[in-house]
Design a protein around this nucleic acid. Structure first.
Lengths: 202, 202
DNA sequence: CGATTTTTTGATTTCAATCAATGTTGGTGG
DNA sequence: CCACCAACATTGATTGAAATCAAAAAATCG
C-alpha cells in the first residue's frame, strides 16, 4: 500500500549514508538495521537499532544526518515521504514511531551517561531480546563485539571480557554464533522481562 | 491561539514529573527547561534542554516518562494536545520539533558514548550558546556544576576542574555568576560558531 | 550576618582504555 | 575435503582519565 517498493539487503549492506537526500521513507519489514554516526576522529557511534515495523528516519525533504546499515538480511519497504504523510491513516503510526525513537534514545542517553560497562551490556541484551521478540532467557544477537561496543560507548575488548566473565560464572551460555541463553541459576527464573539486567549485572 | 494558557515558573520549579498523565502540550516561550530521568540508584541524567520555541514533550494520551524543571524564570504556553494536533497548521511545527529532538539526542548519544570529559564540556558550551542565541564568544550558562555534570555524564568535580583549567590557561573568563566569555588568544577569533569545541578542547 | 548550597582543590582509587599477542571461525579456492 | 586467509574474538599487562573520598573556600539567600 501507499505505493511502497520492496528492497532486499544483505548483512553489511549500506542502506543510506549521511548527506544523502531524504524524501523516501524506509520501513523495516524483516531483519535488523543499525543507525550510526561517524565522529570527526573516525570513531563510530551507533545511535539506534531498528527492527521489524520500525521506520529508519523521519526526514522528508532535508538531508540525512546518519548512516544506516543492515545487521542481517533485511527486507525494507521504501515509500514516498510526502505521499505517505498525506495519508491520514499513516500519520498516527508516523508519530508513534517518532515518539518511540525519542524514548529509546533517552534510555540510551541514560545508559551511556550513568552506567558501568556491565550494566550497559546487561541493558543492551535486555533491549535486544525485547526488540527482536526473543523468548524469555534467549537472545539472538546478530552483532559483532565491535558493533556492540559502538552502541554502548565501550571498546570491543571490554565487551568481550564481560561476556567471558558471565560465561565463566555460568550465567550465560553461548548456543551458537549469534545465539545466547540465560541460565536459571540466578534465583527464580520467572521475574518478568526486565529482570535480565538485574540478573546479569549483579 | 489554540486555546493556550500561560504558566509562569521560577528557577527550580518542577513543571511535571515522570508518571504524570500527558494530554497537555507545553511550549517554552522564554527561559530554559531541563528534562531528566532518575535511575534506579537515584542518580540523575539530564536527557535534554529546551529553550524558547521548544515543546517539552510530544505525548498526548500516555504517561510522561521524564521530569521537567525550570532552569530559570520561564514562561510556558500550555495547550490541549488533541486540539493542537487537530489544527493542520500546527502539525508541521510539531513534526519539526520532534525531528529536532531526535537529532539533538543523537548528538548527545555520540558525545556521551565517545568523547572525553573536555570534549564533552566544550561541546556543551557550544550547544548552550547556540540554543540561547548568545553572541559569539559569550555564554550565558544558567546551570550549576552538578546540572552540567548530569547532562554530560560526568561528576561535578570533573566539570569544575575543566572550567578551572580553561580559566587558568586564559581561554575562558568568568564575567559574573552565569556569564562566561571566550578569550581571543586561541588563534583567529572568526572561524565560525562550531569552532568553540575545537578551541577549548585542544 | 549566619546557614545552606555550591564550588574549588587535593589525594587516592578504580574501571575501562590501550597496547600487544594469540586463538577462533568462516568463507574461498585449490 | 582440506588448507589458507581474513575477519573476529579472546586474553594478558599496563596505563590513564575520571570517579571517589575528603576538606576547605565562596557564593547565595533568608
Amino acid at each position: 500500500m501507499c505505493g511502497s517498493a520492496t528492497r532486499l539487503t544483505k548483512k553489511g549492506d549500506q542502506i543510506y549514508a549521511a548527506g544523502d537526500k531524504a524524501g523516501r521513507l524506509v520501513k523495516v519489514c524483516s531483519g535488523a538495521v543499525m543507525l550510526y554516526v561517524i565522529l570527526e576522529d573516525g570513531r563510530r557511534q551507533i545511535v539506534d537499532l531498528a527492527g521489524p515495523g520500525d521506520l529508519l528516519h523521519f526526514e522528508i525533504d532535508g538531508e540525512l544526518d546518519h548512516f544506516a546499515e543492515a545487521l542481517a538480511a533485511t527486507e525494507l519497504a521504501v515509500m514516498d515521504g510526502a505521499e505517505a504523510l498525506g495519508d491520514p491513516s499513516f500519520l498516527p503510526y508516523f508519530l508513534e514511531q517518532m515518539r518511540a525513537r525519542i524514548s529509546l534514545e533517552r534510555r540510551h542517553i541514560a545508559i551511556l551517561g550513568r552506567k558501568s560497562a556491565q550494566q550497559r551490556v546487561a541493558d543492551f541484551l535486555e533491549y535486544v531480546s525485547d526488540c527482536l521478540n526473543c523468548p524469555p532467557g534467549e537472545i539472538d544477537l546478530p552483532m559483532t563485539r565491535q558493533q556492540i561496543a559502538d552502541y554502548l560507548g565501550l571498546t570491543l575488548e571490554t565487551v568481550s571480557r564481560i561476556f567471558a566473565k558471565w560465561v565463566r560464572e555460568g550465567r550465560l551460555v553461548q548456543v551458537d554464533a549469534t545465539h545466547y541463553e540465560l541460565t536459571e541459576r540466578n534465583g527464580t527464573h520467572a521475574p518478568g522481562p526486565s529482570s535480565l539486567c538485574r540478573l546479569l549485572a549483579a
